[in-house]
Write a protein that binds this DNA or RNA. Sequence first.
RNA 1: GCGCGCUUAGCUCAGUGGAAGAGCACUUCCUUCACACGGAAGGGGCCGCAGGUUCAAGUCCUGCAGCGCGCACCA
Length: 908
Amino acid sequence: MIDLPKTYEPQAVETKWYERWLELRCFTPDPASRKPAYSIVIPPPNVTGVLTLGHVLNNTIQDILARKARMEGREVLWLPGTDHAGIATQAVVEKTLKKQGLIRHRDDLGREAFLARVWEWKEKHGGIIIQQLKKLGASCDWSRERFTMDPAYSRCVQQVFVDLHRKGLIYRGRRMVNWDPAARTALSDEEVIMTEEQGSLWHLKYPLLDERNQPLADAFVIVATTRPETMLGDEAVAVNPADPRYQHLIGRHCLLPLQNRRIPVVADELVDPKFGTGCVKVTPAHDPADYEMAQRHRLPLTVVIGPDGVMTPAAGEDFVGLDRMEARKAVIEELETQGLLLKVEPYTHNVGYSERSHVPVEPYLSDQWFLRYPSIDASTAAVEQGQIRFYPDRWVKTYTHWMRNLKDWCISRQLWWGHRIPVWYRKPAGSSSEGGARHVEADPATAAIHVDVEPPPDPENWVQDPDVLDTWFSSWLWPFATMGWPESTPTLRKFYPTTDLVTGPDIIFFWVARMIMAGYEYLGDKPFAAVYFTGIIRDKLGRKMSKSLGNSPDPLDLIAQYGADALRFGIMRSAPLGQDVLYDELHVELGRNFCNKLWNACRFRQLQGGSPEAEIDPALLTVDDKWLLLKLDRAIREISSAFAEYRFTEVTQTLHRFFWNEYCDWYIETSKAVFQGDNPARKANTLAVIDFVLSHMLRLFHPFLPFITEELWHGLDYQLELPDAQGGQTIMFAPWPKPLGDTFKLHYGLDESDERLVDARCALIGRGRNLRREFNIPANRKVTFVIRPTGGMSPHDVEVLRLLLNADAVNLDPAYAPPQGTPSALSELGELFMPLAGLLDVAAERARLTKELAKVQIEIDRVQVKLDNPAFVQKVPPAVLEDHQKRLADARAKQGQLQAALDALGNP
RNA sequence: GCGCGCUUAGCUCAGUGGAAGAGCACUUCCUUCACACGGAAGGGGCCGCAGGUUCAAGUCCUGCAGCGCGCACCA
């Protein structure tokens, strides 16, 4: 046994044990094991990312689940890895290269050279977040670490693409998609964030044309728009066919200002007569609804905004080359000059922003690949019927709502970094094989295609689709692609389906729902049994953590300052199920204080000397020992049921209460009565009780506080005599505590009456300490107490009272007659007096007793009102009635005693 | 517009029909031989508002308000 220093110093301890755990290969499970499997796949962080407090919360929870499962005797796989994060990573690398002046645009390098740079970047920065997770204590099986661009993983992604294509679920089509002009790629619907904005509704005047196509002097069609720059691409004005105001316009034409183009007025049901003017400008190439209308009315498409968000030549020479926002201003200015701007109204509307680039998304017509989701019914039913459980379960509704309104998923991205689409188009005969702009050599619309994991045997005659797949199209395979699918590996057989998934509700559609569908489609089984949704970490003002606000602390700094255990415990204690977490560094400080307290509680045990005691002698147990064991039993039961419902905060609260209040504040203090006494057998037995309880407590704490518990486990020699695999090598595999059980309680004579006795004694001590305070006895001054006991009281009890009341003596005297004015307090165990020779303050005692009497009177009144109600007495269950009657009797008795004490003080 | 949360002590939150709770913060006392990263004792709540059900409502029902978050092609 090594001596424990006075203050816990986490740094060296954490490094030492993490290395030891790796040496012992504690995190690497054996698929051949006969133990029941427990598995989690990590939500793969961005390979170039750094650890955030969100990761800390998420991964601490996973680690808690994994460590607890290990202690419960399960074969545990926590499978880690990272995600290639297509858009984000490509953007970061592109930006860096531009900053270094190496390129102006990625085209300057070309695809192959650019990708080489990205891989270089990945090799350099890709390991950072993994190293950070290790600092946190994450017990991942690093030998199975995966990356979504690993060759085997890529092959798996391509195979799924090919399969879904063969099933007819993947198709290519020309559609209006969400376009990110900054990243210059299509996005899925889920990657568009709708943001409410204060905009304007511009009312524009389009001159009406007469039969000879001449503008009428004073006849206009008024359209309202939030995006005036798109008017350059208008092809019609639409009205509702049933709108009586505009019947005369249908079939006529007006003049599109600035472009001087003749456009028709069409009738379409889509137009809401009640909104705006009831006339809608139709821009087929730049609005999804307008595109639909254009198809119905066979209108041409004029593209005036290019893929980079800059106006095209079709926008006219006044506007070509302008950014879309500049073009808006210019169009408005020009219309105003021409007197065609009727008015501008302030208008609140929703604008879609790219989740990645944070620029407004542009509806853009392009050729893309789409997926019609597979295994929808099985996936919906699994969650609805509870084969997959959500915690908290209210997310089930969100999930099923989305599943019932699925729209095809746009899976192609106009990027280089990612899984290239395994589709090749046959070049027209006689074309050269020189590289060039995309889609020049083969027309994908008409060319023969080759869709396969393997390229065509004669690659020179084919050209591969240049696009890559959405990153989520690889992530949705994570639970099984990481385990070696499509091979039937031992890992896959043992650990799929996984047990728990821990993630944020913000990716319920992106990831959770899609993983479920992929799981049913390819493994015929759910990918996980339960999903725990964490809250979002916010600062103490409720704002999201963000780099620009500078309110996002670096977890590694916190670990360096307070220790990983402190950070874990602090975060967990403030993270209620289903709600956001308001982070405050104070929580981490409290976590550190907690660790220090635990450290010192164990140090107290160590200072008592002696080696770990194996056997508790039931005959030598004090009431305090029994009380503590019963409290331990209760704590274990509470912790088990809290864990069963993933109520981690409740677990930490119970641990806190049991350890701090019950063990430290009461039990340790009472044990001093034994340790300061002269009964060696009893001392040894107390040590045995402490060792029993501490060894349970350390195990209960281990999932939350892996490092300090391991250090203390060995520091107190609890590993001695245990088999290697059962806690002898590491606390990680020590058996998870079970409730004590009836046999145990019978053997040790644990009875609730012991618990009640000690609780009553605690209450008595509380009364006594209160007297000290009320009469301004300094905490360090010893006084004498006298008790007029109601029953028997053991010498041990008296000694405990003496210590905890900081008394020089506690005298039992059934016939005690206190001097007038002696402060007193009532308790179940007897009346307590604090005689203060020469310091009696009759007035103070009278005031105190009067205050007490007032409190009792409130209680009497409250219960009396209920009992006086005939309906109450008649209808209430007997147990409740008895309870109330007892309350009244107790309160009256107390009132009598207080009154007697008050009378004894004499008149004021 | 539809849906889902939340509203209880100064703060963060428990409390799922029978006496308003915890942690932190606050006040006062204490360096007593585990711990001042500590101990002890206190103060502090029309449980968002209004109705209803019930012998009994923080708890169940109905409205309303405020805050937050999803979903939705009204330009």
